[in-house]
Design a protein around this nucleic acid. Structure first.
Lengths: 380, 380
DNA sequence: TTGAAAGCGATACCAC
DNA sequence: GTGGTATCGCTTTCAA
């Protein structure tokens, strides 16, 4: 039935103390390098501890200090590689400092998310990092109520605050979405594009809104065509990109460039362009935001604004370390700069705008879905 | 300096006991649903615990039971999305059972890997899952020495054993690499291909060797062209795919189909084919193994043998749960079946074999590297 | 069936 | 500086 008792027994602090004829408390102090211990004693203890291969028990320490030296990370889903990069950056800071990372996915579901927070709190994590679009009032309250340091990634506390909590002491780490897209607009304007389309991310995401704002700001500042039909609603996935692209490219006077709020939608746009017989970048320039792994592929070679994912993770890690050593810190917001990576999906605006061949399919949704389906699955 | 003491104080088991006027041990027993407790008492305790919002302290429990209800996962790197899928599957089993997952990356480095194992053991993880190509003798010994259940993913214990450890009690979970590639060969043979090229994975990986064997077995069994020059050495990355493809497609009599040992190399092959003016799948069929996210993209639409990553994770989780309830279990090896996903990168063999235009570049390496480089990086 | 008490291993406080 | 010892919250004998 129940799990068998583990036989393993390690060397305890008492063992070390007895071996040396000193008190456990002295050993503890020495191991923590407290100045109160005499240098000679400290040296003896250190040596003996090493010789006996002493390892402090994380559980015992956690019980008394109420700190587990671990932080919980909540992701919306495991599928998006960009979260890995963030965790990688986070770990690069936290692991050397003796912390471990617990990960959980919300699967974009409130209940799962709440359960994850719950599980983390129960395990006495020292902090919670949230990279999730789907926290609601309840989860926010739960998070605020547990009294732990919380860092929000890609979601501004302001957004959070106005949407949900009356006041929040959460830290924020994100990227310069507005500036990134603005720079993208300028890049295209420099290439002579005057009529640029934009496919937005989901409206509930503050980061997506910032990207849209960067577009509008750029268009206004550079005096480009600001026709409202040049902004299409999207939602960060490939299909949304296809849908948005189809809308924009079917316009009576189609844009000569399209900015998608993320790379995935830019890929969708590429696909539609190709189907309409538009060659990229000769007939149409396409750019995205994020710089996912595949954007660098020669066959894709997408111009994009790079999300500094690793740096975001590192920044979160550093901030956490700060908070651990000084709990009184007031919340901060870190906005990391982005780089524009110019590849081969952008070029000078065409002198003559070829409308392209209209998409033949009537039932777009079914058509889009069918483009994903393999024709056969053979069970080997 | 040091971390401030956390003020938080939760409801303890003693609190619940006092509120009811019973003994802590009875509460403990009731909460564990032990039959020894009278049904009425049990009900009262359960109710009160819920009412008081009681949460067991993981640390206290871990201290006495020597089990932390957590498992450590070691990945080679955080970049590969397939590992996420595995973790996702693992969590879907482990989290409902009350376990948490700790992740660490070896960054393909022995020292980091050792440190990760060490950190896990110190934290009393109940098991370690290793998804890593880079464990060496030392790490293996370390792993075997800590007396914890260990599950190897994508690396057979046999391989492990002959290469490193004299004996191993590790479980293994992987996929049917041989059968998958065999099925791929048959699929191509059914389409009329007789001369098929293969780009291998890294030779030190047992999984890669199995894939190569699947190819050779298929070619032999189906009586296809078994010329040795049809097998090119690769290493699982895009550049290796390009290199291998260039080698195979420059053959005096080029193959009409190429199987790459993974999808990334298949993408590299697509890229080279395109540059040589070969149209896929009309002139050349291309297949991979893994079915990464991008393989499903309409613009790629790669025929491939799907790696059952989620299922692998689930299988690992289930196995772990089994071992937790019965430590005496002898090690097992689970090989999960693969599916062949037929998309649009494969078609009937061409009746006439167009050699394609030879790649113009002399210095292939420099050329390959340059294909990746963005022309400009603009710091916004 | 329930209760009392002894740890688990480390920390922290207070004497000495 | 160092040594005793209570304590963290839970599980687990062993008695009643």
């Amino acid at each position: 039935m129940g799990a068998r008792r583990r036989a393993k027994r390690g060397v305890t602090i008492v063992d070390v103390a007895e071996a040396l004829g000193v008190a456990p408390s002295t050993v503890s102090n020495a191991l923590h390098d407290k100045d109160i211990v005499a240098p000679r004693t400290k040296a003896r203890i250190m040596a003996m501890a090493k010789a006996m291969n002493y390892e402090a028990s994380a559980a015992a320490r956690a019980l008394v200090t109420r700190q587990s030296s671990s932080v919980g990370v909540i992701l919306p889903d495991f599928a998006n590689p960009v979260f890995n990069e963030i965790i990688s950056g986070l770990n690069s800071i936290l692991v050397p400092a003796g912390y471990a990372t617990l990960v959980a996915s919300t699967a974009n579901d409130g209940r799962t998310c709440k359960a994850a927070i719950h599980a983390f709190v129960k395990r006495d994590v020292d902090a919670i990092v949230v990279i999730s679009q789907c926290l609601d009032i309840e989860e926010t309250a739960q998070l605020a109520g547990c009294g732990l340091p919380v860092v929000l990634v890609h979601r501004t506390p302001a957004d959070w605050q106005t949407t949900h909590a009356p006041s929040s002491t959460f830290d924020y780490v994100g990227m310069d979405n507005t500036g990134g897209v603005y720079a993208l607009v300028r890049h295209l304007a420099d290439l002579g594009h005057r009529r640029i389309g934009f496919i937005t991310g989901p409206k509930q995401s503050s980061a997506a809104c910032e990207r849209t704002r960067g577009f509008r700001d750029g268009v206004a500042a550079l005096g480009l065509d600001a026709a409202p039909e040049l902004v299409a609603d999207g939602s960060y996935d490939f299909i949304a990109g296809m849908r948005g692209a189809r809308e924009l490219l079917s316009l009576p006077q189609r844009p000569t460039a399209v900015i998608a709020a993320n790379d995935l939608m830019a890929f969708g746009t590429m696909d539609v362009a190709q189907q309409m017989g538009l060659s990229v970048p000769k007939d149409l320039s396409i750019v995205g935001v994020d710089d996912v792994f595949f954007s660098a592929f020669p066959m894709i070679s997408l111009t994009t604004a790079r999300q500094p994912a690793t740096e975001i993770g590192e920044s979160v890690g550093e901030r956490l370390l700060e908070r651990f050593s000084d709990e009184a810190l007031s919340p901060i917001a870190v906005t990391l700069p982005v780089e524009i990576i110019v590849r081969h999906s952008t070029a000078e605006a065409p002198s003559r705008v070829d409308p392209g061949s209209p998409l033949s399919t009537d039932n777009l949704e079914a058509y889009l879905a069918s483009r994903w389906k393999p024709s056969t699955i053979i069970v080997a």
